[in-house]
């Protein structure tokens, strides 16, 4: 199981790009951390999550 934004999900084997898309996020408006380390945008397609990982997808909205 992979912890995604605090919720355990059966997502092992998926890429960050897949998680971003399945979560309904726009890739240009997110920052993703894997086990508290930033995942560079260029690495979304080949970073694969495994059981025990913790992923935080921060989706930004406008306003400030």
């Amino acid at each position: 199981m992979v912890k995604i934004n605090g919720t355990m999900q059966d997502a092992a084997g998926k890429t960050i790009a897949q998680l971003v898309e399945e979560g309904g996020y726009q890739p240009t408006r997110v920052a993703v951390e894997l086990n508290e380390e930033i995942v560079p945008k260029a690495g979304y397609s080949d970073t694969v999550v495994k059981d025990g990982d913790s992923v935080e997808i921060v989706g930004f909205v406008g306003g400030g």
Binding site: T28, R29, A31, I38, K41, F60, V61, G63, G64
Partner: peptide, 29 residues
């Protein structure tokens, strides 16, 4: 103000200036 600019700054700081403290905001309309 703009969501894509927020994301750009946050990604850039976390990737290239990892020793900084970064405080960001999203969702206050």
């Amino acid at each position: 103000d703009k969501a894509d600019q927020k994301a750009m700054l946050v990604n850039c700081v976390l990737e290239k200036l990892p020793q900084k403290y970064l405080v960001s905001a999203s969702g206050m309309a």
